[in-house]
Write a protein that binds this DNA or RNA. Structure first.
Lengths: 173, 173
DNA sequence: GAGCAAGTAGAACAATCATTCTACCGGAGA
DNA sequence: TCTCCGGTAGAATGATTGTTCTACTTGCTC
């Protein structure tokens, strides 16, 4: 039995991922969290905090989804990475990166910007470690960002483009 | 003297670009448009329409900024393209692509999604025509998307990564 | 100079919002 | 058995929202 705070965070994450950050009001967030209004505010005392809470939960789930069991790959490591990212988009992020979406909705919010920066930094570090191409970290990051942005529009064609670029990167050393 | 509708569209575009789509209320939009409330509603009869109006104006300005005078380039054409895009980010889009931001704020809005798709399609077509690499359209689009997403975080380093990837693409033919 | 088109300024309104508060319930431990 | 603890249900509140409306001004044209 997961504890209440985690259940709330998971529900909030799902609500924001499905409906964006502008639309959902407190009552729909409460319903998604599956909890009473009083309990919701007890654990997450304002709407702003609800956004941060959802994103922190998102970060943990994303890192686990993309980077766990990475050594089990029997395909080129960048193909494996881009397939994982595409799989994440397909199952969890049909509307694109949730962190960029949050910042886009409220670009003046410094805490959100900081959270985005921290998330992307940790992703870049994990990517560099996984790929074994530390001096190509910038290029791989850019491909991943492009893939996440382009996937909602072009689906698997975006994945193929990412893999092609990855191949060129590997070949060039 | 530009006509009223254009002045309103320009003001709305600026307001949404600076403050995102969730935060600005009608009165701040009115102020940015530099017009009275009555006039604002006369030309743009709802907040939803204001978003669409701003994005249509944005599209025209973006296409002009990035793709006009493209033949005057004396550097590799993809370098020219990525510099243009970076220049756009620096002067106009410090928070990333406004179309993706709009959709991210209200992912259920079909009209917004359609506008995003149309914008990206026209950009992809112009990119293919400019680059002279029509069968690499997917890869170039992905680099451009990655650059626009990554630039707010990494600035010129993102531009360099994009150019490196572009060079690999050209070399591979 | 009358009339009209196109604007400003801002009050009024109904709806919705985030947040707080009151009242109640089930179970576990002393 | 009593009594907290952690929860539910939902009403109350006060601020804010998008939108509409009234009253007034300015410049152009017949």
């Amino acid at each position: 039995m997961t504890d209440t705070k985690t259940r709330i965070a998971a529900g909030l994450e799902r609500a924001f991922a499905e409906n964006g950050f502008a639309e959902p009001n407190i009552d729909s967030l409460r319903e998604a969290a599956g909890v009473s209004l009083r309990t919701l505010y007890k654990y997450v005392p304002s709407r702003e905090e609800m956004v941060l809470c959802a994103l922190e939960h998102r970060h943990r789930r994303y890192m686990e989804f993309v980077f766990d069991q990475a050594e089990a790959a029997d395909e080129p490591v960048l193909h494996f990475l881009f397939d994982k990212v595409s799989g994440w988009m397909a199952s969890e992020a049909a509307h694109g990166c949730l962190f960029h979406a949050a910042v886009a909705a409220a670009p003046r919010d410094e805490r959100l910007r900081a959270l985005l920066a921290r998330h992307k930094k940790e992703v870049a570090r994990a990517v560099a470690e996984l790929s074994g191409l530390p001096d190509r970290q910038g290029e791989i990051t850019l491909i991943v960002e492009g893939l996440m942005q382009d996937w909602p529009l072009h689906g698997d064609r975006a994945t193929e483009s990412a893999k092609n670029l990855g191949d060129l990167l590997v070949k060039a050393g």
